[in-house]
């Protein structure tokens, strides 16, 4: 088990890097805010950023391993279907995760 001193240092490092990445660009990008290019990037980026992050969380996906891939595919389908149907963020996340946990812990358990 990691000791407390190490954990505190690890948290401090993660906080410092994360905060710096969130705060410093405001100073660097401030002069660019009014440019049409920046407005364009600000408008089109969100959907792409979320698609990339979704892909990133699925990086361990392996169609050759049906016990892991099965729950992922079914839960993803449930999340998308629920969200297209009800448009309720909370319901979609809860529903998709519940399906994934249920499948991964029972039918597809190792």
């Amino acid at each position: 088990m990691p000791d407390t001193g190490y954990l505190i240092a690890a948290v401090a490092v993660a906080v410092a890097v994360t905060w710096a990445l969130r705060a410093l660009p405001f100073a660097a990008l401030a002069p660019l805010r009014s440019s049409p290019l920046i407005a364009y990037l600000g408008a089109v980026m969100p959907v792409g950023v979320m698609v990339i992050l979704t892909g990133y969380t699925l990086r361990a996906f392996d169609p050759q391993a049906p016990d892991r891939a099965g729950p992922t595919v079914l839960a993803l389908a449930c999340t998308v279907a629920l969200h297209l149907w009800r448009r309720n963020v909370l319901l979609s996340i809860f529903g998709g995760t519940a399906v994934h946990v249920a499948l991964a812990s029972t039918l597809f358990a190792h």
Binding site: P46, V47, M50, V51, L53, T54, T57, L58, P71, T72, A75, L76, T79, V80, H83, V89, S92, I93, G96, T97, H100, V101, L103, A104, S105, A109
Partner: peptide, 15 residues
């Protein structure tokens, strides 16, 4: 197991 799917679900919904 499989609770970590919540992150995937969040990003999917945001997308």
């Amino acid at each position: 197991t499989g609770l970590d799917f919540a992150v995937t679900a969040l990003f999917t919904v945001l997308a």
